[in-house]
């Protein structure tokens, strides 16, 4: 429709001027070096007389070993596992510790131990031949083991039976009660019935709405006004009814 070169309001927006940043001109990293070297080495041969250094002071005389190199202090050598090492084996000229004697009365303690000891149970055995050959009973499998029982770990029969009985009794009781309630209670509207009523109400509302939309804008005569007001009242009533039905999922009907 318009050509693109036409000015727009967006041209009024203040555009921040971004200056293009030029990359810095290249300077060699040796530039300083070169500069220095260029000037420093000059006139090396221009010396006149000895180098100008401060004369040594009499208080600052040369001392013994001053010119020797300063060595670092000696440190004792240590193995890295020194603190983990076992004590060394006794030497052949070491004398063992002599003359140690216990105070324990072995006789009496032994006697007391034996007297108080619980007698040992005989091992469970069985003889399976007439010659009296005996075998160990435990590993043979003749001895019953509790955990190997067939119904080990299961709820005993009497308990389940009792539970069932209780449940049945409760169910019968509930049935009886609900039967009693049903006999005395109100009738509940089923989902389909409720839906049918709502649909019907909506259909009615739409009918009236269609007519209402067809009304003229100007309501100048009394019949027109009455008609409009009547329709508005009807629609309002229907809206209220629809809302009532939609609001409640469960509806009972009294007899």
């Amino acid at each position: 429709m318009f050509s693109n070169d036409e000015p727009t309001i967006y041209n009024l927006l203040t555009v921040e001027e971004t200056k293009e940043k030029k990359p810095k001109a290249y300077t060699s990293k040796f530039r300083q070096n070169v500069k220095q070297e260029y000037t420093s080495g000059r006139g090396g041969a221009k010396t006149m007389g000895p180098a100008k250094v401060t004369a040594p002071q009499p208080t600052d005389y040369l001392k013994k070993h001053e010119k020797e190199p300063q060595l670092p202090k000696k440190e004792e050598f240590k193995y890295p596992d020194d603190n983990r090492k076992k004590p060394s084996v006794p030497k052949n000229n070491d004398t063992p510790l002599m003359g140690l004697k216990t105070t324990k009365n072995f006789i009496s303690t032994n006697a007391v131990e034996n007297i108080t000891a619980v007698p040992k149970l005989p091992a469970k055995k069985f003889a399976d031949t007439r010659n009296g050959d005996v075998q160990n009973l435990i590993p043979s499998g003749y001895e019953p083991v509790f955990v190997h029982k067939k119904d080990f770990g299961e709820v005993p029969m009497y308990l389940t039976k009792r539970k069932e009985e209780v449940a049945r009794a409760q169910e019968e009781y509930d049935q009886y009660i609900s039967e009693q309630i049903r006999r005395t209670a109100l009738r509940q509207l089923t989902y389909d019935e409720r839906q049918a009523i709502i649909d019907g109400l909506k259909a009615n509302w739409e009918d009236i709405q269609d007519q209402y939309q067809g009304l003229s804008v100007v309501t100048d005569t009394a019949p027109k006004k009455n008609r409009k007001e009547r329709m508005e009242a009807q629609m309002k009533q229907l809206e209220r009814d629809i809302e009532l039905f939609e609001k409640h999922k469960v509806i009972y009907i009294g007899n």
Partner: peptide, 28 residues
């Protein structure tokens, strides 16, 4: 009212006229 491309401004006036304004290219 202003168009989305920002080129024209439409204004309604009490003398019953609609005036369509644009922007001058020189000084906007």
């Amino acid at each position: 009212a202003i168009s989305r491309d920002g080129k024209i401004v439409v204004s309604g006036w009490n003398d019953g006229k609609i005036r369509i304004l644009g922007f001058k290219s020189k000084d906007l």
